[in-house]
Simulated assay, not measured.
Amino acid sequence: MGKLRIALLVSVILNLFLAGALMAGFISLRSGDRMINAGSLRIAGSELPVAQRRPFRTALRQARRAMRPSIIAGRAARTEAAALLRQPVINQAAVVAALDRARDADMVVRAAVERRAVGYAATLPPDDRAKLADAMQRRSQKARPAID
């Protein structure tokens, strides 16, 4: 009977923990101030008025979709680099070349997304553009590397 009580107690505690986690997730999704998991432009876009946020995020998403071949190429290059690193004898030039291709693909995607963001920002009123610029500036100041 003791083992059954312990199992029941563990089950109740686990269920309470899971219910709390589900409730916290539900509340965070319903709150107006959600965290945006994405690049700095998308995070900066969270400072825009509610009416402008969704179209801004949609524009960035469309730019990423258009760059899907480059995203896939970058992933493939990183996968290739990882496979080359697993080889018994490392071909450093091949690993570096694969990582160079991955970085180049990432930069092509980033440039396309940034161009689309600037194009969208050009359609915003000056006050909204200023909010976007302020958020980008705050974000860049947080990301500064330490200089010794």
Rank of each mutant, 00 (worst) to 15 (best):
D128L: 06
F56N: 00
Q62P: 03
L16V: 11
R129Q: 07
L29P: 06
D127P: 01
A83P: 00
R34V: 08
R144H: 09
A122Y: 02
L18R: 06
S31F: 12
T123I: 00
V108E: 07
S140K: 12
M1R: 09
Q62M: 11
A51S: 14
V89D: 13
N91K: 05
A24Y: 13
A24R: 11
K142Y: 12
M67W: 02
R129M: 02
L8D: 04
R101Q: 12
K131S: 09
M107G: 07
E47P: 03
R103E: 11
R110D: 09
R5Q: 06
F56R: 00
Y120G: 01
D33V: 04
R53T: 03
Q87R: 14
I43R: 04
A105Y: 01
R65L: 12
A121N: 00
L132Y: 01
P145T: 09
L99W: 05
M107Y: 07
I43G: 02
M1S: 13
Y120M: 04
S70Y: 08
Q141G: 06
A83Y: 03
I27E: 12
K142M: 13
R5K: 11
Q62N: 14
L124T: 00
P125D: 14
A59S: 07
A121S: 02
D128I: 05
L48Q: 01
A94R: 07
A122I: 02
P145V: 12
A7H: 04
F56V: 00
A105C: 12
R5I: 02
V12P: 01
E47I: 08
K3Y: 06
S70D: 11
N91G: 08
Y120P: 00
I71K: 01
A112H: 05
A19L: 15
S11L: 05
N15K: 07
M1A: 14
P49V: 10
R116A: 03
R129S: 02
R64H: 13
R64Y: 10
A112F: 05
V96G: 09
L124D: 00
D104F: 02
A143G: 11
V96L: 13
D100T: 11
R30A: 15
A51P: 02
G2E: 08
G25F: 07
A51W: 08
S46Y: 09
A112Q: 08
A59W: 00
S28T: 14
R101L: 08
V10S: 06
K3V: 03
A98S: 10
V118G: 03
K131L: 11
I13M: 10
D100W: 09
I71P: 00
Q87T: 12
P49A: 14
Q52N: 10
V118Y: 05
G32H: 15
R34I: 07
R116E: 02
G39M: 05
N91V: 06
P55H: 03
A19R: 08
I27W: 14
R144S: 06
A102H: 01
I90N: 07
D104H: 04
I43Q: 05
E47F: 14
A51G: 09
D127C: 04
T58F: 14
R86Q: 14
Q137P: 01
Q92H: 15
R115A: 12
I27A: 15
V96F: 13
R116H: 04
A121L: 00
L48R: 00
L85I: 04
